[in-house]
């Protein structure tokens, strides 16, 4: 599902509410028919969130960052991490401190998390912003593979998603804009 809306329409707020990072909402959030408040751990285990702030420590290397991220959910071995980093185009950058990498490369480090996580629900807030055209293509491929594998994704972006599957669109402005 793609969430659309003009700046300030509440895309990020909506995603943060769904994740449980923001609790100023009314109503219920259901995951597989059960309120998330009743099954917090199950929901979190199925969830992978990448926000505006990508969650990459600038002092650590991509490898160290991913090792920690993975350990918070499901620990993976180094080979998986290297493969994931190679896939997002960061081969040979595994041991470079993230502060020496560009914004786009840091975004790629956070996207590598998608590859090492067994999460079924991806919640991505503006994942395309700093990526170059190849990065955009690569992320669309990842999304397509994830959907084909039975997963679901909730993405905010103004970019026209080019994925070979049905994309539901939620427009927070209420008005359908031509894409």
């Amino acid at each position: 599902m793609q969430v659309l809306g003009s700046n300030g329409s509440g895309k990020t707020t909506l995603l943060r509410i769904i994740c449980g990072l923001n609790d100023s909402y009314e109503g219920d959030i259901l995951w597989r028919g059960i309120p998330v408040t009743a099954q917090r751990e199950t929901f979190l285990a199925a969830l992978l969130y990448i926000g505006h702030r990508v969650g990459v420590n600038r002092i650590l290397t991509p490898r160290e960052n991913l090792r920690w991220s993975a350990s918070l959910h499901t620990p993976v071995d180094d080979l998986r991490i290297e493969a994931a980093l190679a896939r997002v185009g960061l081969k040979a950058f595994e041991d470079v401190p993230c502060r020496n990498l560009s914004a786009g490369q840091n975004q790629r480090v956070s996207l590598a998390r998608l590859l090492i996580s067994p999460a079924t629900l991806w919640i991505l807030d503006e994942p395309f912003t700093t990526l170059d055209v190849y990065g955009v293509r690569e992320l669309e491929l990842l999304l397509a593979e994830h959907i084909a594998g039975g997963g679901s994704a909730l993405v905010t972006t103004h970019h026209r998603l080019n994925v070979p599957c049905a994309v539901e669109r939620l427009n927070l402005d209420g008005v359908e804009q031509p894409l």
């Binding site: 994740c19 979190l44 285990a45 926000g51 990459v56 420590n57 991220s69 918070l72």
Partner: peptide, 22 residues
């Protein structure tokens, strides 16, 4: 501080593991 600024804190809060131990 640094974790708050770079978003790692959100990742920490969204871990299925008990936050107490983290």
């Amino acid at each position: 501080r640094a974790d708050y600024e770079d978003g790692s804190l959100e990742q920490l809060l969204l871990s299925p593991q008990p936050l107490f131990f983290l």
